[in-house]
């Protein structure tokens, strides 16, 4: 069963090896590590890291960020209690129905599963943003933010995947998978939104969902 979920962003600047003398990603990284630490506090048997396929590089950037965050969080867990880590990679061209099918096996698992999603909002929020300004970005991100905070898996599933692509919302399909895997959870997940901000024109969310009663 799915006991918890967490969403963290995966910008390269979270990787300490890419930081300048001024480590601009430090605060966000610390928030992410605390979120993953709290995910592990649900004592899952396995952490499934959900990322979107990167055809260029393996391990992908989100997988490298996840490895860094898990490494920081696992330090606080006794070796005997550490969960296994598995990776679930969503194809870059999957549509929502494809993703729902991909989530199916997670619902049938008998071990306790925590889902760690690497995803972000739009990278087109301002004129200085990496993808320049798209006026649709704010409304799109607000839907995602509210759905993560509530939590509201159905609202995430209803987000337009093509719009997400147009808004450079990296990892959106991984968010859809989290929604698909938790939409029928009973009781409903409880959300704890830790971060929702766009310091560099890209919307970052950090949230933890507790699913088990």
């Amino acid at each position: 069963m799915i006991v918890a979920g967490a969403v963290c962003p995966a910008p390269p600047l979270l990787l300490p090896e890419l930081a300048g003398q001024e480590d601009v990603g430090r605060e966000l990284r610390e928030v992410c590590v605390r979120a993953v630490t709290d995910l592990l506090a649900q004592r899952p048997d396995v952490v499934v890291v959900v990322t979107v396929e990167d055809p260029v590089r393996s391990p992908s950037l989100p997988q490298r960020v996840a490895e860094m965050l898990l490494s920081g969080a696992l330090d606080a867990v006794a070796a005997a209690d550490r969960p296994r880590v598995e990776h679930l990679v969503v194809p870059a061209d999957a549509d929502t129905s494809d993703i729902e099918k991909l989530a199916g096996p997670l619902l049938e698992r008998t071990d306790d599963v925590a889902i760690l999603v690497l995803a972000e909002g739009s990278a087109r929020r301002t004129e200085k943003a990496p993808g320049h300004l798209d006026p649709r970005a704010s409304a799109y991100d607000e839907v995602t933010r509210a759905a993560l905070e509530t939590p509201d898996p159905a609202a995430l599933l209803a987000q337009d995947v093509e719009l997400a692509d147009a808004l450079l919302a990296a990892g959106h399909r991984a968010l859809v998978l989290l929604a698909a895997a938790t939409q029928s959870a009973a009781p409903s997940p409880v959300g704890d939104l830790r971060w929702a901000d766009d310091p560099f024109g890209v919307m970052y969310f950090v949230v933890v969902w507790s699913c088990a009663s």
């Binding site: 910008p11 390269p12 600047l13 890419l18 930081a19 300048g20 003398q21 001024e22 601009v24 990278a123 990496p130 310091p199 560099f200 024109g201 890209v202």
Partner: peptide
């Protein structure tokens, strides 16, 4: 020496 700050292309 590390750059003083590194954000470009990394956000």
């Amino acid at each position: 020496r590390r750059p003083s700050r590194a954000v470009r292309g990394l956000a």
